[in-house]
């Protein structure tokens, strides 16, 4: 049993390494904080219930994408009967005006990098560059 020190030491090192993200967040004090996206102040209803949007907005956006591009349809009737024009920058961003304060906050928190903005233009970006 002369190897005991090495084995136990190795195990501790291993456990320390695989739990590193946890320790990192505890010391940075970022575990308790949620992403806190900034929600619109005037508008109270979205195109779908908040719970659905929170978990499945990407599915809805994919549907919208296919509806406009592939099925030639730009009208969307919401769950409450309200009618919307389908559009990320033209409809979503009318209320959720800031990509940085809304989209990015959750996406950064969840560590995801959607490719929407490779093509679709953050309206703020244009205002800044022209104004």
């Amino acid at each position: 049993m002369r190897d005991r020190g090495i084995i136990v030491g190795g195990l501790i090192l291993f456990l320390g390494l695989i739990t590193f993200p946890v320790w990192y967040n505890v010391t940075a004090g970022s575990t308790a904080k949620g992403p806190e996206p900034k929600r619109p102040e005037q508008e109270k209803t979205c195109v779908a219930p908040v719970g659905y949007m929170r978990t499945s907005h990407m599915d809805l956006l994919m549907d919208w994408r296919d509806e406009v591009v592939r099925r030639h349809n730009r009208k969307f009737t919401a769950y409450d009967g309200k009618s919307y024009t389908i559009g990320l920058t033209q409809t979503c961003m009318k209320c959720h005006t800031s990509k940085a304060d809304f989209c990015d906050r959750c996406h950064n928190y969840a560590g995801v990098a959607p490719t929407c903005w490779d093509c679709h233009i953050d309206p703020k970006l244009v205002q800044r560059s022209t104004g």
Partner: peptide
């Protein structure tokens, strides 16, 4: 030259062409 926010740009590595202004036809 000048970004129009109402229409997307394209991403690297895709093909593009005239779309007969289908967004205006709509």
């Amino acid at each position: 030259k000048e970004l129009s926010p109402d229409f997307p740009t394209r991403t690297i590595g895709v093909v593009e062409k005239c779309n007969f202004c289908e967004e205006r036809l709509a």
